[in-house]
Design a protein around this nucleic acid. Structure first.
Lengths: 143, 143
DNA sequence: TGATATAGTTAGCAAAGCTAATTAAACCGC
DNA sequence: GCGGTTTAATTAGCTTTGCTAACTATATCA
């Protein structure tokens, strides 16, 4: 690649590593029987608690109509529930059901165990490096 | 989260960091005017050189019919070319055009510069940690 | 040569993204 | 407190990207 600074070369490799990592992890999600966008939205609901459609759409970096349809599907599958917001009757309150939370925990466990199985082949020192790198990335990519 | 080992906790945070990183980077790709799967396939062609449809599909972890349609779109946009394989006349040879390579380099540059801008706010030591982490991840996720 | 395997495409479906337009409620200025 | 504007969500309709099943054409092999 023509004339890249060191930082750019690092950025390039970090990007590539993130892509490959997520590709492999995504294979695990097939077992959940829930399409990726739905699983991801459900995850936000389970970990973030009840929220409005706009909030959920923003959290998932998706437009409201897209999220509206995803919530339709989650509701149809009995994994989430829309209720009225009494303070603002234009808005809806979306929350995960018990069943939704249960399904999500299973999927998350599968994914994390898959990754952990790989990471366990590394040395403690290497894992420590990854931990520090994750911290640095979170710091710098936040907002 | 109920009873997670240290390695699992690290896996969880690594997973989350990768998702957030790629989400932000993907925003940059909007500027390429090329849908994500097309951009990604084109990238494989530019960096991996000419290959068959099956090889390209495998590289992108996608089924042949899906890739066939993506290549249709790349051809229609003048970014890739199908030619006959003389040794095996069932197969096609797919390669990026000059225009395809040029577009890809632009997009890649934009993406890498975006990431590099963020990474440049870190210390040398932190970047070194990320570099080591990337190496460890590549080692362990390869294959 | 005839059966089988392989490369690619076509057809048709589902999921997930978008914008534009619509409906209903809330808010605000006077 | 009424009229205009803003905001929350949905509906409609398009595109892209994924899949499987079925088909065509070529290659391979017994």
């Amino acid at each position: 690649m023509a004339k890249m600074t060191d930082v750019e070369a690092l950025a390039d490799r970090l990007h590539s590593a993130a892509i490959h990592l997520l590709r492999q992890v995504r294979v695990q999600d097939a077992g959940a029987g829930l399409a990726p966008a739905r699983l991801s939205a459900l995850s936000v609901l389970v970990f973030g608690g009840a929220m409005s459609l706009n909030e959920l759409a923003r959290a998932e970096q998706v437009r409201p109509p897209t999220m509206s349809r995803i919530v339709d599907a989650l509701e149809a599958a009995g994994l989430a529930r829309r209720t009225a917001n009494q303070q603002d009757r234009r808005a809806v309150v979306i929350q995960a059901t018990e069943k939704g939370a249960a399904i999500l925990w299973q999927g998350r466990k599968r994914r994390v165990k898959f990754l952990a199985r790989h990471l366990s082949r590394l040395s403690d020192a290497e894992r420590k490096q990854i931990e520090n790198a994750v911290k640095a990335i979170q710091k710098v990519m936040a907002k």
